Simulated scan of single mutants.
Amino acid sequence: MITVILVVHLLIAIALVAVILLQRSEGGALGIGGGGGGGMMSGRAAGNLLTRTTAILAAGFFVTSMTLALLQDRATGPSSVMDRPGPIEPFGGSQPPMAPVVPETPAAPAAPAAPER
């Protein structure tokens, strides 16, 4: 189920990017499909169609995103510390504390010896 929704989600994302790139930009020549030259649709009709298509694809992207998030949450179970039963043990578990390590006293230095010849 999750795989099917994920594939649909990816197809919607690719289509959304394509439709956004086809739109005419406000700032200049950034859009791919913003050129002049006749065609079947006028500039206004193409703008309305692309705007409506963008809104529909964006709604589909939002719905599939939320659906994937909810399905994944149900599949993995609770992940919050507050949702887990039982007491929370302190760091280190329930082992008794160790006795402090006392350093040994250093040995007395050896007397210097004369070098051998």
Rank of each mutant, 00 (worst) to 15 (best):
T76C: 06
T53M: 10
A15G: 11
R24C: 04
G34S: 09
I56F: 15
I2V: 15
V101G: 02
A113N: 05
A18N: 08
M82R: 13
F62Y: 10
T105E: 15
S65Y: 04
F62T: 15
R24T: 12
A113M: 11
G92Q: 01
G31R: 03
L22F: 10
Q95G: 09
T51C: 06
I32C: 00
A69V: 13
Q23H: 01
M1H: 11
I32K: 06
A13K: 02
G60K: 02
A58T: 11
P100Q: 06
A107M: 07
H9D: 13
V81C: 04
F91M: 13
D83Y: 02
P97G: 04
V102A: 06
T67G: 11
S94I: 07
A69N: 09
E104G: 12
I12Y: 09
R117N: 09
E26K: 14
I20W: 05
I14D: 01
M82C: 06
G93N: 03
R44P: 02
L50N: 02
V8K: 09
A107T: 06
V101E: 06
I56T: 13
A113R: 13
G35L: 10
L10V: 09
T76K: 14
P100K: 06
G39V: 03
D73K: 11
V4G: 13
F62E: 07
S94Q: 09
S80W: 06
L11I: 13
L16Y: 04
L21D: 03
L50A: 07
P103E: 08
R52W: 14
A114N: 05
G86A: 00
S25A: 12
S65F: 05
A111V: 09
M40L: 15
G31A: 06
P78T: 07
S65G: 05
G34T: 04
A18L: 15
I5N: 10
S65C: 03
G34W: 00
M1A: 12
M98V: 10
L6P: 00
G39W: 02
T76R: 15
T67I: 11
A108W: 01
P100Y: 03
I2Q: 11
A99I: 04
T3Y: 08
M1K: 10
L22N: 12
A59V: 15
P90M: 03
A114E: 09
L50Q: 08
A69T: 14
G31K: 01
A55I: 10
M40A: 12
L16D: 00
G27I: 11
L6I: 03
A113C: 00
Q72G: 13
V7M: 13
I2W: 03
M66H: 07
A29F: 10
V81R: 12
